[in-house]
Design a protein around this nucleic acid. Sequence first.
DNA 1: CTGAAAGCGCTAACAG
DNA 2: CTGTTAGCGCTTTCAG
Lengths: 334, 334
Amino acid sequence: MVTLKDVAKVAGVSYATVSRALSGSSEIGEQTRKRILKLCEEMGYTPNAVARSMVMKRTNIIGLIVASIENPFMSELTSHIEIHARHNGYNLMVCNSSYDTELEKEVFSLLLGRQVDGVILLPVGSGSYSSLQQLTAQVPTVFISENLQDLPENYVAIDNRQGMAAATEYLYSLGHRRILYFGCRSNSVTHRLRLEGYEQACKSAGIAPEVLYSPFERSSQEAGYRLAAGYFQDGIRHTAMLCASDSLAIGVMQAAYENGVSIPNRLSLMGFDNISFAALPPIDLTTVDQPKERMAKAAVDMLIERIKNPDLPHTHEILPPLLVLRSSCRAVRS
Amino acid sequence: MVTLKDVAKVAGVSYATVSRALSGSSEIGEQTRKRILKLCEEMGYTPNAVARSMVMKRTNIIGLIVASIENPFMSELTSHIEIHARHNGYNLMVCNSSYDTELEKEVFSLLLGRQVDGVILLPVGSGSYSSLQQLTAQVPTVFISENLQDLPENYVAIDNRQGMAAATEYLYSLGHRRILYFGCRSNSVTHRLRLEGYEQACKSAGIAPEVLYSPFERSSQEAGYRLAAGYFQDGIRHTAMLCASDSLAIGVMQAAYENGVSIPNRLSLMGFDNISFAALPPIDLTTVDQPKERMAKAAVDMLIERIKNPDLPHTHEILPPLLVLRSSCRAVRS
DNA sequence: CTGAAAGCGCTAACAG
DNA sequence: CTGTTAGCGCTTTCAG
């Protein structure tokens, strides 16, 4: 491995000079700079980022902790975060927390030991905040996707309330009057906000809100399937279902199929998140999009700001969600 | 930030002693070790991995370059790689190459500058090998998913030939005699191997192989859709289609739906890869599974071996694929 | 068993 | 404009 010193020796200058040539410092002659740069090229010199970090006291590394990288929503976010971070001179160190609060803490500490300049967190759940307090105090951190309300942390989220209100209004405009909010988990802040949007829109429209709560831990396909299977047993009492997430909706689709319930003919179905699955032709789920690229950029920008100026106060950014109309909903005569 | 020196000062020992206490060196008294460890705990000392890397000349970081993290196949692999690497004491630095050979080179250099101990590559394509030769020579590298045949590199892949042969035999066993191999790209080694498996199985079964080549760059849904749309125009001349990948198969599904072709009643459909999409109830695609977790583990283990002993010769591991039976194929009377 | 000291590759004063 | 030098936080000889 060729180092600054090696180059300096060959060039016949001190290694500080080589350093200056590379850093684009102005305190150096144009001629020597060129000569040295060419030499570096020839000798195949690669700056050692570790050594640089050592003295600069910054690594230009952002830690990313994800509940599950293979989750399509999260992997999409991850992808955008990586690209945007890299464009800003940062590399990404990624860790799975595997939906485990203890592990989440563990990998956070690991990243701290690695001297990351900041961390972006796709948290296990709302509980992550308190569990991580001691750690987040030690390095700029931004949470993503979870609405932390007035907690003293940085976060970017979407306007869940507005998104669900818009979804409700859309169904209403199609003529639906009996709309079920399906799969709400009472322990999720996000779900609660979505519920509020739903209830508010129902109220404005003058229809009665009806909620089917989920007893499951996570909003998986499995959960959607099981909850829907139970629902279908007792007969279909609604013309439309508003699912708390896309995964749930896909589970509902399966149950509907097995019970001979045609979507959208017998039942209109909406999801929330717009995961990539939702766009697949055989699924083609009408849903509410979380603007992943914008969220990723916002999180990275917010983090970098705070890395550059750690004294900045906590902040958050609430992005507007977007209705994505596909074929799982149809108009009915009311 | 509290350092070794700080701890040493409080403990009233030299900082070498603290270092020894932490490293579990045997050259230290049991009593002092305990005292120091406790002190470290109390003072909230976190070892600085950067400084350690500096002197150890190893970072315990594995670089991972992925063509596209949001691709479900790759994100699943990534997830397993991260977990397995971490269990072995390595963290993961992840970069997207965005299916761009130039960028792939660029991020590889970046990782070299970061002094990663090794890199795992989910390459853009078969061309990545030659384009990256100079870089891969500088650090232990293992390719994953692409079959590099006799090239002097480390890689893990699956037995594409056998997988496709098994798929063909399965269709044959269901009574299919007119089986189309759909979407083969002639520039892909992987596709060529799959083709060979198909042809070989056809030969053994005594049926005529028929291939529809793809003119598209990538095996996307879009490509499958367009290719299938053209195929359906001219009438359906086969009872089963063996797609070169799951993405293609999903595109075919869409085209089939639009053309009123019922799957599997009119046409049996098989994919290859077993991406997570394939398992979704509305899709439920019969396919050939690439064992992602095993591949990830194999790649990590292979890399770590080579990190520990850089003189090891190049090697590769070919894993057996597995038939996944779902509902997109049906038996026909032959 | 413990301390002193060198040095990993680089940046950033500080001198000249 | 260029050279000298002092570290960054840690591990590891080498002496005691």
